[in-house]
Design a protein around this nucleic acid. Structure first.
Length: 333
DNA sequence: AAACATCGCAACCGCTCCAAC
DNA sequence: CGTTGGAGCGGTTGCGATGTT
């Protein structure tokens, strides 16, 4: 919908703008003002698409643009805004008069990111690198627990899958009937509305792990995952891990940077093992506006586990599965 | 001095959102 | 209510400038 590329139309110029073109665009906007960008090229006598004109004006020709190096103050503001907003460059630019989103994005990618890395700070979660690496590599075994909002919930622990029914009972399902035609990601986008459900799920599944933490391999962590599934096939999957220390521990730095892939690293996999990857929904980033996982985990630390899950599925068997898990276990999911 | 590598920035591409129809 | 098209956004690419070997 609404997808149209400038290059679809013929005889349109691309590439760098000439001074003549700049002059035409400038004088047109100055005279007429900003209206419909799609009609600008024709009215201004330019062989460009409206989109290109808009970009040129916004990023280069606008009279209120600030030029030159970023000041220390601007740099600090970008860093702190990025910590809160992530890669929402337009929103960041709105806080920095005279700077464009493109300019800030370029500055971030070419300079600030490296600067932070040099200071030992991971530019995406804005956390010390060492701490982040611990989350990413040491606590590297993840359970994946797709959450289904509806009568049934099902989740997956390595190569086993379970149903959590409305009455709270957990039953193991065969691998054949797992993940059938459900959309499960909506709760991610409305976390406040689903907090009680999520809490319940954690109490059933995650809390038992916390409770017996001392019996676990310290490197063991659990992950939490939601997936959108359609027609019996996973079409989209998103994960965000949580560790025993209640920090987000997604092994993926990508997820923090809002890129379209997330990666998991399994316990026992070497540093150089091939990573699994899958697409994540862009909308996931909205979730990270909330310190949701962290808060909920802290709450959970003071909760009592139900024990039902534990009696049905002894930890020993689960840890066995986890420690023996291999890449194939995840590829089945 | 030439070849190659790296960097930084401008521009493009593909997508989502949303209003108009 | 579905479709269309414009606006805007973020990720990516291409290319000139600069640095290195």
């Amino acid at each position: 919908m609404g997808r149209h590329s400038c290059n679809v139309k013929q005889k349109l110029r691309k590439g760098l703008w000439s001074p003549e073109e700049d002059g035409k665009l400038c004088s047109y906007i100055t005279k007429v003002g900003i209206g419909s960008w799609s009609s600008v090229p024709k009215l201004a006598g330019l062989q460009r698409c409206g989109k290109s004109c808009r970009l040129r004006w916004m990023n280069y020709l606008r009279p209120d643009l600030k030029r030159g190096m970023f000041s220390q103050d601007e740099e600090d503001r970008i860093i702190s805004l990025h910590e809160v907003l992530g890669n929402r460059w337009a929103q960041i630019a709105a806080q920095l008069p005279g700077r464009t989103d493109n300019e800030i994005k370029n500055f971030w990618n070419s300079s600030l990111k490296k600067k932070l890395m040099k200071q030992g700070i991971d530019p995406n979660p804005h956390k010390p690198l060492r701490e982040n690496q611990e989350n990413c590599t040491n606590k590297n075994s993840m359970l994946q627990i797709p959450h289904l909002n509806g009568m049934d919930q099902s989740f997956h622990i390595t190569n086993r899958s379970f149903n959590s029914e409305a009455n709270g009972q957990l039953t193991e399902t065969s691998s054949e009937d797992q993940f059938v035609s459900k959309q499960v990601s909506d709760f991610l986008f409305n976390p406040n509305e689903y907090s009680s459900e999520l809490l319940a799920l954690y109490q059933k599944i995650v809390r038992p792990y916390d409770h017996h933490q001392s019996e676990f391999d310290e490197n063991l962590s659990y992950g939490f995952c939601s997936a959108k599934l359609e027609q019996g096939q996973m079409t989209d999957q998103t994960d965000f891990g949580s560790s025993s220390t209640s920090r987000m521990s997604s092994s993926s730095s990508n997820i923090c940077s809002n890129q379209n892939t997330a990666r998991i690293r399994m316990k026992g996999m070497s540093e150089h093992s091939e990573d699994l990857s899958w697409d994540v929904e862009n909308k996931m980033e909205s979730l990270f506006q909330y310190p949701y996982i962290e808060i909920k985990n802290e709450e959970l630390n003071s909760c009592h586990s139900s024990g039902d899950f534990m009696s049905n599925y002894p930890l020993s068997s689960l840890t066995e599965e986890l420690s023996g898990a291999n890449l194939d276990d995840f590829q089945q999911i």
